[in-house]
Design a protein around this nucleic acid. Structure first.
Lengths: 210, 210
DNA sequence: TAAATAAGTGAACGTCGTAAACAAATTTTG
DNA sequence: CAAAATTTGTTTACGACGTTCACTTATTTA
């Protein structure tokens, strides 16, 4: 055979056969788990059953997904990556800053409404892993997005710059998660309205001013 | 024996022998656990070891404290109850609203600095049980305090009233917890300064105004 | 005094998540 | 191309976790 090189093309984005099989394996396990969740509910499905149904050993399953919630994260993040281009061009049509954030939250609310079933355990998980921001954990797509949206608002002169965008984003992410959790646990709340209210409160503050 | 009545005195606050022994038992277990935590660190101590050291069966331990973190909560809440009167008279000397909240946070920061060792697992726990506010869970002392402080600010005309005090308190509690967690995980941050900054942000909002 | 209630005990069980030792496939290196 | 190194996966076993069940003991209530 001719000695072919592994990453010959200009960019180094060719994952290699091993990495490709790995991603396949990940997707396969996550999809299998998702089907089980839909059949029996998230809580009722055990890791052993997922391993069995995906036809991998328990140890292998744990290597890829240390906790059950990570399976949800895999699917949700894959969805987000898929929806990102369309989302981005939609946002580009709105002026940066507060208005663009409001638009993003409205879109997100609509998406979340369609995911009510497994959103609660996922948010719990996100909240618990949100605690140690600096320790090399893989940052979710969301905080990167918030950071970016807020930085845009700062550049536009609309948002204060005495607090770093990353810090503002972290604070906002907590009230954001809190709001979503409230909508999921308290019945009859509109996610869109509550998220809009949270954004207003975060922008205008609690103190009354003329 | 003469037929003594159980709760004869005007108020019904006489706990009865059983309840008294129960509280004793709770304190005894929590204190024993605390000693173990200080000796070996929170994570390293197992529930079995706590049961053994307190000389109660594992089932009994789990009956009183379903999770290890509940032991921390017992001690922390006992401390808060003990410190509450002094705290309250201190706060009464400051004008209600933002200034009083700032004072409370400063006091709390000082207290937290002395509790660094086991504060992190406790805050994680609080955050996780904070999710379902309405489902009959025992509310911590803190959210009641925040609700009260914020309601005072509303009465004084300083805080907006278009959002209920309870909702403002919940939102604030999240950014408050987030700030404490950040101070514990990132080294070299002053809790007092960061909490003050969080309060300022919550009061004034993210948007720049003249 | 008798019945109801609450707290506690001991043993056993199934699940969870991990560690150790080992096998197979794929890069990398000589 | 073959050998070594790395990655991926499996089997087995183990300790901790949290719960269930049947059973004692103490207190409250009738």
């Amino acid at each position: 055979m001719s000695p072919r090189q592994q990453s010959p093309s200009g960019t180094a984005d060719e994952p290699g056969r091993r990495e490709r099989k790995r991603q396949q394996q990940l997707d396969h396990i996550a999809d299998t788990a998702w089907a089980l969740f839909e059949a029996s509910g998230f809580e009722a499905v055990t890791m052993e059953r997922i391993a069995e149904a995906s036809d991998v050993s328990k140890v292998t399953l744990y290597r890829h997904f240390p906790v059950k919630e990570a399976l949800l994260r895999h699917v949700f993040h894959r969805d987000l990556r898929a929806a990102w281009p369309a989302l981005q061009s939609d946002l580009a049509a709105v002026v940066p800053g507060r208005a663009r954030m409001a638009r993003f939250l409205a879109l997100q609310a609509a998406w979340c409404e369609g995911q009510r079933s497994f959103l609660l355990p996922y948010l719990r998980f996100r909240l618990s892993e949100l605690q140690a921001p600096g320790d090399g954990r893989e940052r979710s797509g969301l905080d990167a997005i918030f950071s970016e949206l807020i930085a845009q608002g700062q550049t536009a002169g609309e948002f204060r710059t005495d607090v770093p965008a990353a810090l503002l984003a972290m604070q906002f992410q907590f009230v954001h998660l809190a709001t979503l959790l409230r909508c999921l646990t308290e019945p009859g709340l509109s996610m869109e309205k509550e998220l809009a209210r949270t954004l207003d409160l975060f922008c205008d503050g609690m103190v009354i001013r003329p």
